[in-house]
């Protein structure tokens, strides 16, 4: 039984702080750090990220691992199943599928990522200008985008490919003609939201030029959705390239992309399935990884999910 005088004597400020410091609320974490922590907890997203890193790694060093080039033919060994000599088998001209797959990886990934990056640049520029300037200019810009958006994307791409002829640069060009619209819309809606924040108004009130506000406040704060959209545009660009190749509009032989390899492998599906199997799996795996990563990023950046 403790002494009553002791129990009921006043508590000093120092003693209070000592007793209760552990009950204070946790310190605020920065936006980016918090997002990264959340992303790390998302297992499917991590799977996607590691798979992508592996795929990119193999795209770079894969062709060097085997003793063959992507164009040498071994006509007596054509359509061979996977073996210790040819790890993924051979195609109808006896070319090593392993090497070709990783060359194809380079092409497909290059086309997908560069088309998306170009979409990013055009889209961010367009969306930011529209969102920032507002008024009639914005209205006409978005109407232009609406009309363009209503046109079936792949049809236009197919038409362009027929006219221009196939080739890596033309595929990238065709993909970027209307691919930027989605990014532009997202950027514009983000800008519109951020523009209303008090710190932006404060910046204008302090005399900052529109360009400065755009570069210093608007775009950095819209980065979250921009990154997510970029990550999710890449798989649709890769899909589009594979699809075009499947229709016969892909890169020219002997260069191969995963799409053209799948197209070549289709007629031989019944008897030599590995010719379709390997490129098809890699296309799917790449798209899956980007989608998982994109989903994870979207959840990680979502302010509503903050505790």
């Amino acid at each position: 039984m403790e002494d009553k005088t002791y129990l009921f004597s006043p508590l000093s400020q120092a003693e209070k702080e000592a007793a209760f410091e552990h009950t204070a609320y946790a310190p605020q974490v920065s936006y980016w750090k918090d997002a990264w922590v959340r992303l790390k907890q998302n297992k499917p997203a991590l799977f996607g990220l590691t798979t992508l890193i592996l795929l990119i790694f193999m795209a770079i060093i894969g062709p060097f691992l085997s003793q063959y080039t992507y164009y040498e033919t071994h006509l007596s060994l054509k359509n061979d199943p996977p073996s210790s000599a040819f790890w993924f088998g051979t195609d109808e001209l006896g070319r090593d599928l392993f090497t070709r797959c990783w060359w194809g990886a380079r092409i497909s990934l290059f086309v997908g990522i560069s088309a998306s990056l170009i979409d990013l640049v055009i889209g961010v520029f367009f969306g930011a200008v529209a969102g920032l300037l507002g008024g009639k200019i914005e209205e006409w810009m978005m109407r232009f985008a609406d009309v363009l958006y209503a046109i079936p994307y792949l049809l236009v791409v197919i038409l362009l490919m027929v006219v221009i002829g196939s080739g890596i640069l033309t595929i990238i060009l065709a993909l970027t003609i209307t691919g930027w619209i989605n990014m532009a819309r997202i950027v514009r809606s983000q800008i519109l939201q951020i523009k209303q924040q008090d710190y932006v108004r404060a910046a204008f009130a302090l005399g900052a030029s529109r360009r400065r506000v755009l570069l210093q406040h608007l775009i950095p704060n819209a980065m979250g959705p921009i990154i997510v959209t970029l990550t999710l545009t890449i798989p649709s660009a890769i899909f589009a390239e594979a699809f075009l190749s499947f229709l016969g509009l892909g890169v020219q032989a002997p260069i191969a992309s995963w799409g053209t390899m799948a197209n070549d492998g289709l007629p031989a599906l019944r008897y030599y399935p590995w010719r379709l199997f390997f490129p098809a799996t890699f296309i799917s795996l790449t798209m899956l990884s980007f989608n998982l990563l994109g989903d994870g990023l979207r959840d990680a950046f979502d302010p509503r999910l903050k505790k």
């Binding site: 594979a242 799948a262 289709l266 098809a280 799917s284």
Partner: peptide, 9 residues
């Protein structure tokens, strides 16, 4: 993620 034509094959 799996393109329709790949699923088809």
């Amino acid at each position: 993620s799996v393109p329709s034509f790949i699923l088809a094959t």
